[in-house]
């Protein structure tokens, strides 16, 4: 029963995420309103047939704004998670492959980053980089790599001892070639799983930063900035924060299930 259940959640969560991604890309075709078109006469309306999620304090259609917000949220999540995973993979591979004092030093640095809450480091980085899209991209890419580095190092240490690596070495292959062609392909599975977990972490971090007013600035808007706007008027108009919040929640949930499902799929030992 568990296997079929797992396949179902995997299918539903990846289908949902595909839908959100497509909706983000095709936002202009899915709504007749623009995200910035104001209509003061129709401000702060509840959900209706014309505005399925109501309107905000300037009369802008919330559904359109959430669709366009998905662009910023998903794009920031994908890009920063990809960068973080790349940095972490290279870092971890170097540490694991070279070993010795290089490894010891590199891992001490990781330990230092590891103990601190990444949101705290991201906020400190935002102070230096300045708020806005570039700052947030760099800050989130720079905080996400630590877990990845630990994971890849541990995997490289393991695969390094395999016979085929010894054979490659005996055949005269250099370090780059061995790591690139004989080790990394073998650990691609766990790397993909951790990418699936890194994307929602990044999306959530962006939304927190934006909610606090430290993240994206106008004209960019993400689910986090929408929630921040919504929070101010929440007492009288709860739909303004509920809809962007739920959009983020469902996306997070789908990523969690996708990550869990992928991990079980790729690692038969956790199947029971």
């Amino acid at each position: 029963m568990r296997a079929t259940f797992r396949n179902k959640t995997l299918a539903i969560s990846s289908g949902f995420l595909l839908l959100v991604t497509l909706a983000a890309v095709a936002a202009p075709y899915l709504t007749s309103f623009s995200y910035e078109e104001q209509n003061i006469e129709a401000r702060l309306e509840g959900p209706s047939a014309k505005h399925p999620m109501g309107t905000d304090s300037l009369g802008r259609d919330l559904y359109s704004r959430i669709l366009y917000g998905a662009r910023a949220s998903m794009a920031v999540g994908f890009v920063t998670a990809l960068c973080a995973v790349l940095i972490g993979t290279v870092y971890g591979a170097v540490a694991g492959w070279v070993g010795g004092w290089v490894d010891a030093f590199l891992m001490r640095v990781v330990d230092i980053f590891y103990v601190f809450p990444s949101l705290l480091i991201a906020i400190l980085l935002m102070v230096v980089l300045g708020q806005g899209i570039t700052g947030i991209l760099i800050a989130l890419a720079l905080v996400g790599w630590v877990n990845q580095a630990r994971l890849v190092r541990a995997q490289v240490l393991q695969v390094k001892e395999h016979l085929h690596v010894e054979a490659a070495r005996a055949a005269g292959a250099g370090g780059f070639r061995i790591v690139g062609r004989h080790i990394l392909p073998l650990i691609l599975g766990p790397v993909m799983v951790s990418l699936t977990f890194q994307i929602p972490t990044s999306i959530m971090a962006e939304s927190f930063l934006s909610f606090l007013g430290l993240g994206l600035q106008p004209p960019y808007s993400s689910w986090g900035t929408l929630a921040a706007e919504g929070f101010r008027g929440m007492r009288s108009y709860p739909h303004l924060i509920i809809f962007p919040g739920v959009a983020l929640f469902l996306t997070m949930l789908a990523f969690q299930f996708l990550g869990d499902g992928l991990r079980d799929l790729l690692d038969p030992t956790t199947r029971s």
Binding site: P200, F208, A227, F231, R235, P238, L253
Partner: peptide, 21 residues
Amino acid sequence: IAGVSLPSYLVASVLILVFSL
């Protein structure tokens, strides 16, 4: 899983709406 997926501002808003307002 929901606990790690819920943005805290959504949780806070719902709690405030229900228990305070």
